[in-house]
């Protein structure tokens, strides 16, 4: 006795030879049971064939791209830039100190890390221009516009456009930076991930990724002992 589910499955896929197909069609004409089997099977396969694809959850594709490519390129960039970063990091930390120092140091918790209050930056708007000394091994930040405000979730957002010119050995790098400060972290969001990685690879030795939210790649911690410099942690993934 024929296994009609098997034969009909092959018939639907059109992989039977002409004689087998003729046998099936003869049976379909003669047997109501086989015909019902066939029609039900056809409905199932046709329905499966029309199942739609769902979109990836919002942000997933970007996050995956970032996680996938950054992990690899970052290592290479870090290796290449290792000796440069040693030279450059001191000047950059100094620049960052000047950049952030004017609004850090306002509110520090027991751990020594800066923690903004909900309403702290809700209405503050300020701009500053910094011109790092020609003596700095790493170039200058200028001009700098900083706008600070909070949203309903008490997330502190600053917009800044920083033009960083690497005066040592590399072509000028421009980074458009959006900064989001949450709790004691300053998280940088950049428009161009690769550029940002290059920028920070050249700038900081041993940077760390602490967020996998698409384009976030760094945090800044502010120590309690403000002796004129900031402790900046840019951390690696993993």
């Amino acid at each position: 006795m024929k296994n009609w589910d098997e034969v009909l499955s092959l018939y639907i896929d059109d992989v039977l030879d002409e004689k087998q197909k003729a046998d099936v069609e003869k049976e379909l004409a003669a047997s109501a049971v086989v015909r019902v089997k066939y029609e039900n099977l056809l409905i199932v396969t046709q329905t499966l064939n029309t199942l739609s694809e769902v979109d990836l959850p919002e942000g997933l594709a970007d996050r995956i791209l970032w996680n996938t490519t950054a992990k690899h390129t970052q290592k290479a960039k870090s290796r290449k830039a290792q000796w440069i970063t040693r030279i450059a990091s001191y000047g950059t930390v100094a620049a960052a100190a000047l950049l952030f120092g004017f609004y850090f140091g306002i509110n520090r918790d027991d751990s020594g890390l800066y923690t903004p209050e909900a309403d702290e930056y809700s209405s503050i708007e300020m701009t500053a221009s910094l011109d790092i000394s020609e003596d700095a091994e790493f170039g200058g930040f200028e001009p700098i516009g900083v706008r600070l405000f909070s949203d309903e979730n008490f997330e502190y957002v600053t917009d800044a456009e920083i033009q960083a010119e690497a005066r040592t050995l590399v072509a000028p790098v421009t980074a458009n930076v959006q900064m989001t400060a949450l709790s004691n972290e300053i998280t940088f969001f950049v428009n161009d991930i690769q550029e940002a990685i290059n920028f920070f690879a050249l700038t900081f030795d041993g940077f760390q990724i602490v967020s996998q939210r698409g384009d976030a790649f760094a945090t800044v911690e502010v120590p309690a002992e403000d002796n004129g410099t900031l402790l900046i942690h840019l951390m690696k993934i993993e």
Partner: peptide, 20 residues
Amino acid sequence: DEAIGPEALLLQKELNAQIE
């Protein structure tokens, strides 16, 4: 069970969701 005919499947609403 199949004697209920193909129309039974055809009449089912949201067949796509059911088949998933």
